[in-house]
Write a protein that binds this DNA or RNA. Sequence first.
DNA 1: CAGTGGTCTAGACCACTTA
DNA 2: AAGTGGTCTAGACCACTGA
Lengths: 259, 259
Amino acid sequence: MRMTGRKIMSMDETSSVGGRPAADFRPLYSQVKDLLIDRIGSGSWKPGEMIPSEFQLAAEFGVSQGTVRKALVELEQQKLVVRRQGRGTYVAKHSSQQSLFHFFHIVDEHGNKELPTSVVLDSRMKRATKEEATLLRMQPRASVHAITRLRHLGGRPVILERITLPASSFRDLDVPTGREMTEELYVLYQRHHGVTIIRADERIAAVAADAEDARHLGVGLGTPILEVSRVAVDVQGNPVELRLSRLNTAHHRYFSRII
Amino acid sequence: MRMTGRKIMSMDETSSVGGRPAADFRPLYSQVKDLLIDRIGSGSWKPGEMIPSEFQLAAEFGVSQGTVRKALVELEQQKLVVRRQGRGTYVAKHSSQQSLFHFFHIVDEHGNKELPTSVVLDSRMKRATKEEATLLRMQPRASVHAITRLRHLGGRPVILERITLPASSFRDLDVPTGREMTEELYVLYQRHHGVTIIRADERIAAVAADAEDARHLGVGLGTPILEVSRVAVDVQGNPVELRLSRLNTAHHRYFSRII
DNA sequence: CAGTGGTCTAGACCACTTA
DNA sequence: AAGTGGTCTAGACCACTGA
């Protein structure tokens, strides 16, 4: 069958010939989907770019347009592409807006999302702790970037964040200390480092504010604050960012929707 | 055209006839979906029951099997039905297992979910506070059930829960005080009251343990604990349960996945 | 074996965008 | 007007389940 480099197996081909069932069978649309993810993940198609139409892809892969459509619809649900009737299908591009909408889950007392500011308190390279190396699936003591920043909401300091990034995936990371960040980090990851975050797992606990929390968040020592531990994952499913947030919930809440 | 009671409008019929665009156009599959939701929500098909096959529904509604399929696939994604190849499509039935998996987001230090126990500390009727009435979209001071229960995980008391339910939707609610609950509440809601919870919004803050928290959770007064405020919503989209959980995060975490 | 959902195809037509 | 995705149809065949 068709294809360059990789082969799509039709159901007939994978079906048992000598009576042995094919264990590695995968639907066509799923194979198509993986090919498309490869091209997006590898940067063949860049964020914001339009990808070929359903018919073009169908012709290229030697499948029907409906099969390509099913793959594209799933990619849209995973937020890897954006589809617009009459315009085309585009590789998802993180904008500050979208990034906030998806990955920023702090709301004010009325349930509204505000725009946070971010000032970098510290930015340096260090060696990963054992736990960091495990979570990021790196060698122990591998090099990582360590960023500390303070985020304001409604004029108040609310979130103290410590971010850990593998140096290997984020070469020449440029996050100068003491400056206000105008851009969402996930936008930066995507544009400068080709890393697209598509998922994040968060674990939340209540802790007592320590001296540093107290100083930066303007709360008393021992005040109950939220600690949010995030592991963010890229298109290929690799954990690529750790984020430890200490959050003053005097005037804000962590929001979660269970569906 | 086909149908009993309600009418499905094809695209032609809704299209402009006198040059006026049809503002109320809805795709066929979406109309089919609403009809199916009606039958599930109204109890015509009960939880656990098999519903007619795609071809039977297609014949009944006068649409193609593919159109019914699209509606059913969306209902499956919303967890309103369960589809099994070779068996059929079934109205989703909350089991304790599923209920825990979906709506219980507390994990232990290793990220594992444990089975909680629940002892009812108090169960009574009262009048809704202003806030409760607003959140449940009831008249001020309408009758509600108020349940307080304590949940253990791994032998430790971890969660103190206060649940508020509209008396109108939960007549003859049977939650005796002082007893261990063997059944998940959402299973009870569905089986005894025809209320299926499909979504929940949670807002989380860190607070200091008060005297009652301290007594029941076995922590010191003022210890930082999590406060989780949930509003749970039924099939029709109405808020039907409020749940205020106070959670000791010494050995557990609230877990949230952002996709 | 019959009946169900799952995959795949081919083709028609509609709605929307852009030129 | 051309090109895109969105809806809808009809039909074939596959994979799975249970009688």
